[in-house]
Write a protein that binds this DNA or RNA. Structure first.
Lengths: 349, 349
DNA sequence: AATGGCCATGTAAACGTTTACATGCCCGCT
DNA sequence: AGCGGGCATGTAAACGTTTACATGGCCATT
């Protein structure tokens, strides 16, 4: 391995001078600089990130803790994050599958020292665990976490508003028996969406029927199973609101399996508006949250905190959602990519 | 920040002893160990990864270079990788969007020193660029790269065999006008799949019609556009082989848009067998490559190289593919998740 | 000509670990 | 009693940087 010492020796200067050249800091004679760069290129010298990090206490890396990596949702978050991090010349250290407090604790610990900041997306995290396992000085941005403390920057989707508006839209279509495929139990996104559905039903003069609330876990398979369960009911629901698009896709598959027309036999709506939603058959009506943008915003917020050494003013942001009305809810004569889908903005809380 | 020195001082021992305790190495009195651990817990000491890395020349991190992060393909690779890396107590440093040689060069450089090894997935990489920009000692696994050198471990999908078999299957269905939606230009996966299609057509006694070869770039949007182009032809193709599932999904959407029945009006097949393929309407026939498994294998291979300090015997592996026959090709009476899809194994080259 | 100041560069400490080697103690053997 | 050996622990160098401070040369000012 070629180190700064090799370059210094070969170029006939001290290591300090080489360092100055590579960091564009301090005064250095033009000739000297040229010579150093020449030697460095010849030796293929690359400054060692660990040595640098140890000295500067910066790693130029950002940690991203995700609960999972399944499906388009996380892949989109990641895409936005990577794009933004890269623009700021930062690396992304990704870690997923942290589904209980102990795993999260371990992950937080492992990240210590390797990253300048942390974006945490975890339905199971709480302020105590965070404070216990992270130094106060480490910038943190919480993504879709339910942490009551305002000591952290946080980014949340307007789950309640989106679910409320979507259910209201289904009511507007004339549906009276609207089922919901719930998300993972004890997940904050899931429960907020359920609350939106419940309130919309109630406000519409109906009563939320327990039999119309079936369990799911955000996967296609669970959506498939849930839809099958709903079909066994009598009377059947005339509309189904799935708490995310994956489950909606699973449900669509189940309905097709039973040769039920959509939206005639049953209307379907999802949540997230993943990129493929518009390409499905029928095109899926969904609540758009701008997932890609979520990743971008998270990293931007974190970088701001890093630059200010975590002494900045914390912000809790709730991102507004948008209804994207396509075929599956019964908003007819929509042609993919030929006309724009009907869109209805939902004001943030 | 709490360092090993703080723990040593507080526990009344030397830093060497603390280090020994935390690395389970060398002899240390039971009482001493207990005392050290107690103090460490009280002070919430976590060994600094940079210091450790500098000393041991290991980072316990693995770099993953991806061309992109769009869609389920990469998300599945990542999922498999993360899972395997985590099991081996390694971190994953992800970097994407490297679409030309210069960007790759920069990414390789940035990774230097931060990772113990590199998984590189890039259609644009060549042996020269790799050798130029990486120290010989750094383990590398090439994923779906077209590098003729056998100086690297590599994992490749049997693109040719899969495409050949799928085209043959479409021929078996009686189709004579089989179009192909090509992948990104100059992409090795894309060209190998095209070659498979071409050879199968030729071997079936037909002639590959240039008008039936339309451009695509592996995105849903390009598949949509390509399908629209195919519909403008006369006579139209009776079957379409899309070089990946995303484009197949785009094509399905375009056909639905024109109210063409699938598979009656036109049969469709994809490549990759992404998780949602089985949930689509109609369920998508595809070439299964076990994407998740690809990520697992890549990391396993890399870890093996790391453990052997890169002195191991290099392997070039071509992973066999499997035909998964569902509705979209005309293999009828398939019901999602009720029966297993028809499956046909394709021997590796 | 002596002085002061600036500029280019060098020196060395610091960052937080690991680890080869040194130290000193205790025990058992002769 | 003297000695060797093993065991627990300490000491210090090394890893590759950055950076505060020191140094020395040169130029302009008095």
């Amino acid at each position: 391995m070629i180190t700064i010492k090799d370059v210094a020796r070969e170029a006939g200067v001290s290591i300090a001078t080489v360092s100055r050249v590579f960091n564009n800091v301090g005064p250095v004679e033009e000739d000297t600089e040229r010579q150093v760069r020449l030697v460095a290129r010849r030796l293929k010298y690359v400054p060692n990130a660990l040595g640098r990090g140890l000295s500067t206490k910066r790693t130029d890396a950002i940690g991203l803790l995700l609960p999972d990596l399944f499906g388009e949702f996380f892949s989109e978050v990641l895409r936005g994050s990577d794009q933004t991090a890269q623009k700021a010349h930062h690396h992304l250290v990704v870690s997923s599958s942290h589904n209980n407090r102990e795993e999260i604790r371990a992950a937080l610990t492992m990240m210590r020292g390797r990253v300048d900041g942390l974006v945490i997306m975890s339905p199971h995290i709480d302020a105590e665990t965070l404070n216990e396992n992270l130094p106060q000085s480490l910038p943190v941005v919480l993504l879709n976490c339910h942490v009551e403390s305002n000591g952290f920057d946080s980014l949340n989707i307007d789950n309640y508003g989106g679910a409320f508006a979507m259910t209201q839209h289904l009511l507007w279509h004339g549906h009276t028996r609207i089922a919901i495929i719930k998300g993972t139990e004890r997940n904050i996104d899931a429960s907020e969406r359920l609350r939106g559905w419940t309130d919309a039903i109630t406000e519409g003069g109906g009563t939320p029927d327990p039999r119309f609330q079936v369990d799911g876990n955000f996967t296609e398979a669970s959506g498939f199973d849930a839809a099958k369960q709903l079909l066994a009911l009598s009377p059947r629901p005339t509309a189904v609101f799935a708490c995310n698009d994956s489950m909606a896709i699973g449900a669509l598959s189940a309905f097709r399996d039973e040769e039920i027309q959509i939206p005639e036999g049953v209307a379907v709506a999802g949540f997230d508006d993943v990129p493929i939603a518009s390409y499905l058959t029928p095109a899926l009506t969904s609540v758009q949250v701008g997932i890609h943008n979520l990743g971008i915003r998270a990293i931007e917020t974190l970088l701001h905190a890093v630059r200010n050494k975590n002494t900045h003013c914390r912000q809790q942001i709730v991102l507004p959602t948008t209804l994207v009305l396509r075929e599956s809810c019964g908003c007819t004569s929509y042609h993919a990519h030929v006309r724009d889908p009907l869109i209805q903005h939902i004001p943030s809380l």
